[in-house]
């Protein structure tokens, strides 16, 4: 286990204070149940999301670097954890840019000076996802030891989305064999949920595009892509799609509703954050995990399976 994952700087990002509130609540609750500590990054800002990156990637690099500057320079943290795929991706991208691109370094230096804070230096901080945090901060054996319940019999399709593994070159720690994550066949969520008793189904679209970034500008494409993901999960035998990103999660939930309304195509698979599922198995109440905030009502299913 990695000792420096026991207490990490926590960067929830904007989505976890809005549509992904349940992910924030369940991440904090699971951390507490597992004895892991979170120290929220002070005065954090938006990572630049997809919008800023599209218009001016250097400004996105700066925005993400400011978050890392606060964590590394002011909080003296060694590790920052971002549960949102978008934030995680952007911090990784900024790290890559600052390590490899002189113009990015100069831009960040200039804006940081203007903003009146110390510049972030590449290599000062390790950015991890919530999956890394639990997988390497606790591990499956310790997780099993702390279980108060089980996800036994719950058939789960694990959906990682795209930004957790792409583009590959900004995740140099992945694809290293052994205990490292895979970019083509990610498995950390599968491993953790299996340790909690879930049955992971063979889901071949675990990193497939859901049209997420175009959910407002081209809703029909997104709805059709999501509908196919939901159908494939059901065909694979899943009762639940486990998510690890607020954008993926709300995209799947809302397009499930839209597919029924606009296309007349009903699917019944439920969406739950992996932290909500782990939390239930760790004996945390569904209320504290904010399962009631999900659009897709998973509580009835969990009760029916005697899991919650």
């Amino acid at each position: 286990m990695k000792k420096n994952y026991q207490t990490v700087a926590y960067y929830p990002g904007c989505a976890l204070e809005g549509t992904g509130h349940a992910y924030n609540a369940s991440t904090r609750a699971v951390g507490k149940a597992l004895g892991l500590a979170l120290d929220e990054v002070r005065d954090w800002n938006c990572c630049g999301a997809m919008e800023v990156k599209n218009i001016d990637p250097k400004v996105q690099t700066y925005l993400s670097s400011r978050v890392m500057a606060i964590a590394a320079n002011e909080m003296k943290a060694k590790v920052v954890m971002a549960p949102c795929n978008g934030c995680y991706h952007n911090l990784k991208k900024a790290e890559h840019d600052l390590a490899h691109d002189v113009v990015s370094r100069e831009t960040v230096e200039r804006i940081s000076k203007k903003a009146g804070h110390e510049t972030y230096r590449a290599g000062s901080l390790e950015t991890i996802h919530a999956l890394d945090w639990i997988k390497h901060g606790v591990g499956e054996e310790e997780l099993k030891r702390r279980l108060k319940g089980s996800l036994k019999g719950l058939r789960v399709a694990n959906y990682y989305g795209c930004m957790y593994t792409r583009p590959r070159h900004i995740f140099p720690e992945k694809d290293q064999g052994g205990q490292s994550e895979s970019t083509s066949q990610p498995h950390f969520m599968d491993d953790l949920l299996a340790a909690a008793g879930a049955v992971n189904v063979d889901f071949p679209l675990k990193t497939a595009c859901c049209g997420g970034a175009h959910t407002l500008s081209d809703s029909d494409t997104s709805t059709r892509l999501v509908l196919n993901l939901l159908r494939a999960a059901e065909a694979a035998g899943a009762e639940v799609i486990a998510t690890e990103c607020p954008t993926c999660h709300s995209g799947l939930e809302l397009h499930q509703v839209r597919a029924e309304k606009v296309l007349g195509e009903k699917t019944t698979v439920k969406m739950l954050y992996f932290t909500q599922l782990l939390g239930v198995a760790l004996g945390v109440s569904p209320r504290r995990l904010s399962i009631h905030e999900n659009v897709s009502d998973g509580i009835a299913l969990l009760k029916e399976k005697s899991i919650a």
């Binding site: 599209n54 991208k93 795209c162 930004m163 792409r166 900004i170 175009h214 494409t221 059709r224 196919n228």
Partner: peptide, 24 residues
Amino acid sequence: RLFVQGKMEVEGLGEFCCASRPVR
């Protein structure tokens, strides 16, 4: 098919999310 159809209708599909085009 859905992804390629989406790309043909809106070329930017996936452009500024996981592709992180400027980096590439």
